[in-house]
Simulated assay, not measured.
Amino acid sequence: MEVRHTTNPADVKQYTTERLRQEFLVEGLFEPNKINMVYSHYDRLIVGGASPVGEALRLEDQETLKTEYFLERREAGFLHIGGGVAVITVDGEAYELSKLDVLYVGKGKQDVQIASKDKNDPAKVYIVSANAHAEYPTRKMTAEEANPTHLGSLETSNERVLNKYIHADGIQSCQLMLGVTTLKPGSIWNTMPTHVHDRRMEAYLYFDVSEEARIFHMMGEPSETRHLVVANEQAVISPPWSIHSGAGTSNYAFCWAMAGENYTFSDQEFISMKDLK
């Protein structure tokens, strides 16, 4: 597992494009027959990807976590982003996930394995894990059960569907929050006007992006913005002090996941367009 440390916003102002990408962009998550993960020191969030083609892949990394098993002091969310049906087995109990289904697995589960139901049509599973001090039950939720909310409009180029999976009124967790936003054809903007939430970090995974398309992910302090150019199935680690929004050259989807002190959506501090620089 790759480990990334936190950064000082005053220092980030001096970063080159390449340094920004090294610190905040996560590439190569979905490699056949491997689980690739990045451990961020921002609220100890882990993001990862699994694409099982042959045998099942076990979620583990004792060397990095220094624990007996992965979820000894953690919880995790699993989002199926494409391909065939994913099969996630939790302490012997199997759960099948179709595209945009989410499985939450709470603290204390010892054996988690990820497989594809059909090896000729491998699944792609996005993994997000946060520290946990309390146990919550394993639960699966489909996109339909996530109460899709239609937001925005084509006139403002942000017509989209929001699915909230892991949150206070959905799948219960200790601190992890997770959802998916899907932009309609003709819409390109996400989370604009933008905001910050200084008590939570966030990670984005962009997916369903066409091969030639790119996302311009906006980050940085509101008075000192920067951007990352992001391709399909790449993730961005967003510090608590940073804005997080983006515009694509076509429509796309993204998974947003958060961890930190607050377990609410009401701590957002919205930034006026006139204050962005």
Rank of each mutant, 00 (worst) to 15 (best):
Y69K: 02
L59R: 02
V47T: 10
E60K: 13
E55M: 11
L45E: 06
V53R: 12
E55Q: 15
H41K: 14
L65G: 03
E75Q: 09
D43Y: 13
S51T: 07
D43Q: 11
E72C: 06
E68Q: 13
Y42M: 10
V53F: 05
V53Y: 06
K66V: 09
R58E: 14
R58A: 14
Y69I: 00
G48N: 06
A56V: 07
L71F: 01
E72I: 01
Q62A: 13
E63K: 14
F70H: 03
D61E: 14
Y39S: 11
E72P: 03
G49A: 11
R73Q: 09
A56E: 14
R58G: 02
P52Y: 02
E75C: 04
E63N: 13
T64A: 14
D43N: 15
I46V: 15
S40Q: 07
L71E: 00
S40G: 14
G48E: 03
Y69M: 00
V38D: 02
F70V: 10
L45Y: 05
R73G: 01
E72F: 02
T64E: 08
D43A: 07
R73L: 01
Y42T: 09
L71S: 00
L65H: 06
G48T: 08
E63L: 09
D43I: 00
E60R: 13
G48W: 00
F70S: 00
E75A: 01
R58C: 07
G48K: 00
G48Y: 07
G49L: 05
L59S: 01
E72Q: 15
E63R: 15
D43R: 10
D61P: 07
